[in-house]
């Protein structure tokens, strides 16, 4: 039925990276009392309050600065972006509007929401994953075939 791409499958680093992401969400939760939802942290900057701006920028600076810090020690794993510019623009607009309208993305609903056993986040995660599966199926096997 499903053919596994054994040569691309990296369970060890995937699990290790996942644990790091979990620790990031856990530290943000336990230190600051908040959900580490990236679309919400970024989107909140568009309607900022005085206290809000600095910590939101600090969090985003951490994520954006991570690759630079990483490169001080080692080489970055490859980042392959095969989508063309029109596709990237459409994808960006959909992700921007969709995550705000649906109150979350892979981090807020996927990681944090499932961790706190929220049915609402489970519904969101099943919906965006389902839509992702369907979109790739259409793009790669119906249009791209």
């Amino acid at each position: 039925m499903i053919d596994i791409a054994w040569s691309q499958f990296t369970p060890g680093t995937a699990l290790a990276g996942g644990v790091l992401i979990g620790l990031a969400a856990a530290s943000f939760l336990l230190l600051n009392g908040r959900i580490a939802g990236i679309s919400g942290i970024l989107g909140g900057l568009l309607t900022p309050t005085k206290f809000d701006i600095i910590w939101r920028v600090a969090f985003l600076a951490g994520i954006i600065g991570a690759p630079a810090l990483w490169m001080l020690v080692g080489e970055l794993p490859p980042i392959e972006i095969n989508a063309g510019y029109p596709a990237l623009i459409i994808a960006g607009l959909l992700v921007g509007i969709g995550t705000r309208y649906g109150s979350g993305c892979t981090s807020g609903h996927g990681v944090c929401g499932l961790s706190r056993l929220s049915l609402r986040s489970l519904a969101a995660t099943l919906l965006f994953m389902g839509a992702g599966f369907a979109t790739v199926f259409i793009a790669r096997h119906l249009i791209g075939a």
């Binding site: 990236i38 994808a91 993305c105 389902g130 839509a131 979109t135």
Partner: peptide, 24 residues
């Protein structure tokens, strides 16, 4: 929640980017 998540999923499937990886 439903419409927003579906829109996000379609965008995710088009380019393979969700917000965090996009920023990295």
């Amino acid at each position: 929640l439903v419409i927003g998540s579906l829109m996000f999923g379609i965008g995710w499937g088009i380019a393979g980017f969700c917000p965090g990886p996009g920023l990295v």
